[in-house]
């Protein structure tokens, strides 16, 4: 019998890296400097690489013969399980980098914890992805500090980014039935257990960046359950159009 909870988790993390990877790839050819352009494209490619591992494993666990491509390109928005944070539009460089930083800080902790997973494949994928993510955190942390504590304009844009993205971070730490079941089985950590360390890290960086964390605790939720903002529909339309127009095409 297919392991429904494990499939659910694998699509949550795989869809999250897929959607963020696609978002970041939207900068390709548009970044403020050639060096940043390549760095962002590298990050996007890393995330798509993680997606391939997570989603192909999800397909195996599901046992219906779906491949990574079937899952990435032939599902509708309501079937996606990514966190809302990663479908937020790029807007400007400040929003892109802040989103990346808030995500990277969570991603690193999640992967460290998943390396101890009782599921061998999950732990192997986490170990492989961890090395790249360690660099992502280093890079986005550095940029947040530089831009937050930079010019008047970069500071203003960064504070705006933190203010608008903050309400989307709460979802990273909510637990539901699937999380509790998988945590009991030793496959994943309870999402809420990562929050303390994440906040400590984020607070330290924001303060070095002279940025202020919003006080309000309100959190947008729904991504994990397939309830998305309108932004995901547009993203998927662009991401999936070629595959849907040419079913089964290969290089």
């Amino acid at each position: 019998m297919a392991d429904k909870a494990l499939f659910e988790f694998l699509t949550r993390i795989g869809d999250t890296t897929l959607v963020l990877g696609h978002r970041v790839s939207e900068w390709c050819g548009h970044a403020p400097a050639l060096e940043e352009d390549i760095a962002l494209a590298n990050t996007a490619l890393d995330l798509i690489g993680h997606t391939r591992m997570w989603l192909s494993r999800a397909g195996e666990v599901e046992g219906k013969g779906r491949t990574e491509d079937d899952l990435a390109f032939l599902r509708e928005a309501h079937e996606f399980r990514n966190y809302l944070l990663v479908e937020r539009p790029n807007e400007d460089f400040a929003v892109t980098i802040t989103r990346q930083f808030l995500f990277d800080a969570w991603h690193r902790l999640m992967l460290i914890s998943l390396q101890e997973s009782s599921d061998q494949r999950v732990s192997e994928i986490a170990e492989k992805a961890s090395k790249e993510v360690a660099y992502h955190v280093e890079r986005s942390t550095d940029l947040v500090v530089r831009l937050g504590d930079g010019t008047e304009e970069s500071h203003r844009r960064m504070q705006h980014a933190v203010d608008i993205l903050w309400p989307y971070t709460g979802e990273l730490f909510t637990d539901d039935e699937t999380d509790r079941e998988l945590s009991d089985r030793g496959i994943i950590p309870l999402p809420s257990s990562l929050e303390g360390e994440w906040k400590t890290h984020v607070d330290g960086v924001l303060s070095a960046a002279t940025l202020v964390r919003p006080e309000r605790e309100y959190a947008h939720k729904g991504g994990k359950a397939g309830v998305h903002t309108e932004h995901l529909g547009f993203l998927l339309a662009e991401m999936q159009v070629t595959h849907r127009a040419h079913p089964g095409a290969t290089w």
Partner: peptide, 20 residues
């Protein structure tokens, strides 16, 4: 060669541009 605001970022940029 590449552009960067300081040495630390020049190293990072070099990592991304030249050691892929």
């Amino acid at each position: 060669s590449l552009h960067a605001p300081d040495a630390e970022m020049a190293i990072r940029n070099a990592r991304d541009v030249y050691t892929r």
